[in-house]
């Protein structure tokens, strides 16, 4: 439990290093440092456009960045060094009408253990099936993604991360527009994975939810504004820095 599974040091991202460049400021993110341990469940809070997604993408090596990212003590140089990371996109970023079944989605996680020319083996199918059961989606292999509810879709993506045996899962706004029972269900799954040793970073702009559900929160707005328990992180000072006056409502 003591060694960090994810170490981020002085992470910085310049605007223009990925699509949707803004103007006026030069840094989308600067000087972000933190550590996450095995099995930790961490909320990442901040308003829209604060750089939560950018930080996730930088950690995954999808955008050019400065600073150091270490996963399992291994310094990540390029994307192939980061197979231990799984990124779960915002709902709107995936084409749910894509003709892919839930089973195939989860099998995608197994690709890291195979070469490009290899078909998924029986062991891969078993692992995918196992993952689906862990997220309480057993028996949905042949469903298409449009047949899933918002919460189910998030769980299916989590199953893909499980099948990938990722040590760190980054979830981008997976709690937006999800009702309370679904949120409860999702957290049940988060806790299962967490117990298995998977660390999870969950980005959200919902402060009330963060307060209730997470033991540790990172407050992000351009840089790391706060890191600690919800009580510490969601203190008036930090909220002002993170959200401006909006945060204290």
């Amino acid at each position: 439990m003591s060694t960090p599974i994810l170490e981020v040091e002085n992470l910085g991202v310049k605007y223009g290093s990925h699509h949707g460049a803004h103007h006026g400021r030069s840094d989308a993110l600067y000087d972000v440092s933190f550590e996450v341990r095995r099995g930790e469940l961490v909320g990442v809070i901040g308003p829209n456009g604060a750089g939560k997604s950018t930080m996730f993408k930088a950690i995954c090596g999808l955008v050019n960045h400065s600073g150091v990212v270490e996963v399992n003590g291994v310094h990540c140089h390029d994307r192939t060094d980061r197979m231990d990371l799984a990124y779960i996109p915002q709902r709107n970023d995936s084409d749910l009408t894509f003709p892919i079944t839930v089973g195939e989605l989860v099998l995608a996680g197994r690709r890291r253990f195979n070469s490009w020319w290899q078909r998924p083996a029986a062991a891969d199918r078993a692992a995918a099936d196992d993952a689906l059961h862990k997220v309480l989606l057993g028996g949905t292999e042949s469903c298409s993604l449009t047949e899933l509810s918002g919460g189910q879709l998030q769980r299916a993506y989590l199953a893909r991360a499980l099948a990938q045996q990722a040590s760190v899962v980054l979830l981008d706004e997976s709690l937006s527009g999800v009702d309370e029972p679904t949120t409860a269900e999702l957290f049940e799954v988060f806790n299962t994975l967490s117990a298995d040793g998977t660390a999870m970073l969950v980005a959200t702009h919902d402060l009330a939810l963060a307060r209730r559900r997470f033991k540790r929160c990172l407050a992000i707005n351009g840089t790391l504004r706060g890191d600690g328990t919800p009580e510490q992180t969601l203190s008036p000072n930090i909220l002002d820095a993170t959200f401006g006056s909006l945060g204290r409502s």
């Binding site: 799984a86 995608a108 996680g109 490009w116």
Partner: peptide
């Protein structure tokens, strides 16, 4: 398989190789 992964979610596809 590669086409499927790259076409559905190119971010994840890159991550798994």
């Amino acid at each position: 398989n590669e086409l499927r992964l790259a076409s559905f979610d190119h971010v994840q596809a890159e991550q798994v190789g």
